[in-house]
């Protein structure tokens, strides 16, 4: 190897490895899409959880809240227009989140074509994520399908009147339909683990905090997950144990 002092020049752009696609289709680009759509979904989930608590105010208030979501912005906006803007945004965020997750999962499977014969339990700082994120996601998707059939379209709900949200909630979580409540609670556990890792992971992907702030983000993430799971779980538990009737 020559030890002569030479002027070095940067590699020309043409000599560099060329991206197979634009930066937003790269692993980090897809992660940013997943993180931003995930944060939007978290905001929706927090609003949904808070809205559910109207069930403790009784039939009138709960149904008025549900009707209010449809008439929000009237008479300035047409009926249900605000609701549909929110729904379209929500569907777009969910599709972007799932699409980026599927592409990245497939790339990850290609990146490890041969598995290790010997495996040890995960020991990283977010070790629970290895086992819970992808399987939990499948549970959450299955739950959302059931949830739409149950409380949005009422296909599997005994209360068909779309304006009686209170009645539908009471009917679906009635004590004799306990498997529905159990499935709901299981999905919440999956959601809790998903949020516990997902929120701080999204912040790490978007803003890359330093070590001190990463720790704080992880703590906030866990707190949000606990509050969301508790806020959602209290409704079916209260109905099943007939504290709300």
């Amino acid at each position: 190897m020559s030890t002569d002092l030479q002027t070095r020049t940067a590699a020309q752009p043409g000599e560099r490895a060329r991206a197979p696609q634009g930066p937003w289709r790269s692993n980090i680009g897809l992660k940013i899409i997943m993180a931003v759509s995930g944060i939007l979904l978290v905001l929706f989930i927090i609003a949904h959880m808070a809205g559910n608590l109207h069930v403790f105010e009784g039939r009138e208030e709960m149904n008025a809240y549900a009707a209010g979501l449809r008439s929000f912005g009237e008479p300035l906006l047409p009926h249900e227009s605000f609701l549909w803007i929110m729904r379209i945004g929500l569907i777009a965020a969910a599709l972007a989140h799932i699409w980026s997750a599927v592409v990245l999962t497939r790339r990850a499977m290609v990146a490890r074509p041969v598995r290790y014969a010997s495996r040890k339990p995960a020991r990283g700082e977010s070790r629970h994520a290895v086992a819970t994120m992808r399987w939990g996601a499948i549970v959450i998707v299955l739950f959302v399908v059931w949830h739409l059939l149950d409380l949005t379209w009422r296909t599997v709900n005994p209360v068909k009147d779309i304006h009686d949200a209170y009645g539908a909630v009471l009917a679906t979580f009635s004590p004799e339909r306990w498997p529905v409540t159990v499935f709901y609670l299981l999905a919440l556990v999956a959601l809790g683990f998903h949020l516990r890792h997902g929120i701080w992971s999204a912040v790490q992907t978007i803003s890359g905090p330093n070590t001190k702030w990463r720790g704080r983000t992880q703590a906030i993430s866990l707190a949000v997950a606990v509050v969301v799971v508790a806020g959602f779980a209290i409704v079916p538990l209260a109905v099943t144990f007939e504290l709300v009737s």
Partner: peptide, 10 residues
């Protein structure tokens, strides 16, 4: 052909 990061910390 490396995969993406999922922030597990492994």
């Amino acid at each position: 052909g490396f995969g993406g990061c999922t922030n597990t910390g492994e």
